[in-house]
Write a protein that binds this DNA or RNA. Sequence first.
DNA 1: TTGACGCACGTACACCGTACGTGCGACTCT
DNA 2: AGAGTCGCACGTACGGTGTACGTGCGTCAA
Lengths: 210, 210
Amino acid sequence: MPAEPLSRPRIVAAAIDLIEREGADAVSMRRIAADLGVGVMSLYNHVPNKSALLDGVAETVLSQIEFSDDPDADWTDRVRMQALAFRQIAHHYPRCTMVVVSRQLQSTAGLLPVERALATLRSAGFGGHEAVRILRVFIAYIVGSLLREVGVTPTFAPVHRPDIAVENVDPLLFPQVSGLAPMLVDCDHESEFEFGLELLIQAIAVQLKR
Amino acid sequence: MPAEPLSRPRIVAAAIDLIEREGADAVSMRRIAADLGVGVMSLYNHVPNKSALLDGVAETVLSQIEFSDDPDADWTDRVRMQALAFRQIAHHYPRCTMVVVSRQLQSTAGLLPVERALATLRSAGFGGHEAVRILRVFIAYIVGSLLREVGVTPTFAPVHRPDIAVENVDPLLFPQVSGLAPMLVDCDHESEFEFGLELLIQAIAVQLKR
DNA sequence: TTGACGCACGTACACCGTACGTGCGACTCT
DNA sequence: AGAGTCGCACGTACGGTGTACGTGCGTCAA
């Protein structure tokens, strides 16, 4: 009998831990149970099924986003901060990110960032319709960026795979790709992300002027 | 004995068909073999494993993107056309889209769009480094948008019943979300996509002026 | 004391990917 | 024509998966 009783948070935590250690493919109910030193079916007393467990993983990760919103700051700074905070899940939970992104959840955990973002945009002067549209653009950009960041590290990770592929590209068929190969291969995710983020912020700032 | 012999393209086509009919979760080697009226292991004479099969699915779908590039057109129009062409995979193969974006492949199938895009950006006057960065931003945005359209992104994607979730939101805790609920629930993907696309194009046009 | 209930657990089933061996038809070489 | 090789469809089998179901033990309520 374990001193700490089984519980949904404990199971979710074990799942997150397992995903970060060995990748999302390694997740199985048997494996999680083994990590907890517990029978497989005991998990089902606290979690209805594996899908719900992964929802719990996404929810938990999302809820740990830390927004340090400063209502007095310029709205561009607030948007920037919120976007960067969202992206930080890729640093804290790199391998869980794929799970979060590829899973639709209807809990309120994912709603808090949405609420904050909409409030920021509306306080900046955007109308409701515009705020929603702009939020969608930002989310699309952030999610797409995260996907690239975790995509470089598939699950277990020889990162130097693409170099080989780029080396083998025919310079006659793909002059741009082969010419720009060094820039395509190495990618500072942080600065790349911020580049696009600034592009978007600047664009909606222009939009706001009208 | 089938009149048409088994082959990799036929297997990939069956996989695409199955994914579109019943979703990516329904894909199994046994199921595909059954659809082809063939033994399970016969597939392995043409495809090394399931992962490679899914790579083939992504590759095939990607290769069917139709670019009608007009070198005489304004670069903004060319960028727009390429982005919209890319997005059309979400219309032709809605359920395969998730497979495509969640799988990074190093074949040359995915390289052709990259080559064209880089050529367009450089002809517009961007340097190599800038072109790569801008392309990354566009890809992130497109992929993120496709994920929402397919209906797997943490925000509202009205695939089935998100209305219920939005109805149950506490207006006091989430005033923006509940106030803007109608706009969050219904989403014209086409116009939403183009909104963000124009935002980005405009932003990089400004960037180009310097 | 007795009953109910929560919860850990073992067993069992259907399904999965795929390693391996087998057999059959077609083709090549002598 | 005979012999050898090879491509390819196929069956069997193994270790893995999610989870439905039944069982037994602990604690708490009446």
